[in-house]
């Protein structure tokens, strides 16, 4: 196995806030890597630095052995790094089909017919359950639906590695399962994933390896079963042990909101 994505000692500050504080992370080719951590620990900033939406103050990002630190977003995308956004960034006044088609500019000319043919676009929309809305403007969709459009947009380009920022947020549980299946399927065909997600069941079930971020740095990394037992993770992130019971549905640890259930009239 070779390292496809390598982040070395990256730093990034906004004013006095150290969003990334010597963050290092390696994603092996052909894996599904998870990235978890409390709100504000720097996960999205790391995504922004990797994909060139923000420039690192220090440190390097390498993709496929090539140094891509500070390259323009379009260049990094062209090399095969795709991503979605936590707060969705779709083209509000374009239809869903048109939203998909914008990505056509980012793939080599000879693959455009294959990746962006009408049939494949409809297939992708069908996968996320939005076929009926193909001609609707993206701005008229709910947050969860826009999230699905983003997923279809990034998958359409068939990048080598896909960075997903909370793909399950705002998505109904059945569809979350389907998205997990789809990621697994694409992974078996060789696509690498780096996934930020708070839905523990999703992350634990899907990822080969999980990194944990806190205060701008990766504090732990390992297989899911190792990470969920790591006391630092339990303390900083989960706030208690993770149930393994069969009833532990989507939303994972929310099953433990004993105080709340007890308060029910």
């Amino acid at each position: 196995m070779t390292a496809l994505l390598e982040v070395r000692e990256v730093r990034k500050s906004f004013g006095g806030l150290h969003a990334l504080n010597g963050c290092s992370l390696t994603v092996q080719e052909g894996t599904v890597a998870g990235l978890i951590g409390p709100n504000g620990s720097g996960k999205t900033t790391l995504f922004n630095v990797i994909t060139g939406y923000e420039r690192a103050d220090a440190g390097t990002v390498a993709f496929g052995g090539q140094d891509v630190t500070g390259l323009a977003t379009g260049k990094i995308g062209g090399l095969g790094v795709g991503r979605t956004f936590q707060l969705t960034r779709v083209f509000n006044r374009l239809t869903l089909l048109e939203n998909l088609q914008v990505g056509r500019a980012g793939v080599p000319r000879e693959r455009r017919g294959e990746l962006y043919g009408p049939a494949r676009c409809m297939e992708l929309l069908d996968f996320v359950g939005l076929t009926a809305l193909a001609q609707a403007q993206a701005g008229s969709l709910s947050y969860g639906q826009r999230k699905l459009v983003e997923l279809a947009m990034v998958l359409a380009q068939e990048p080598k590695v896909v960075l997903l920022d909370e793909p399950a947020g705002g998505i109904n549980p059945t569809l979350i399962g389907q998205i997990a299946d789809r990621i697994g399927e694409l992974n078996r065909r060789g696509m690498t994933f780096l996934v930020v997600e708070h839905n523990m069941e999703f992350v634990m079930g899907l990822c080969d390896v999980i990194s944990v971020m806190e205060r701008g740095a990766v504090i732990a990394c390992g297989r899911p079963e190792e990470v969920r037992k790591d006391p630092r993770v339990l303390d900083a992130y989960l706030g208690g042990a993770l149930d393994d019971g069969p009833d532990d549905g989507p939303g994972g640890p929310t099953g433990q909101t004993e105080g709340i259930e007890g308060a029910q009239p």
């Binding site: 709100n39 909370e166 947020g169 705002g170 992130y237 909101t257």
Partner: peptide, 12 residues
């Protein structure tokens, strides 16, 4: 959707 984007500890 108050749960959106919250880590497990915060969600609780």
């Amino acid at each position: 959707e108050p749960s959106m984007g919250l880590d497990p500890k915060t969600l609780r």
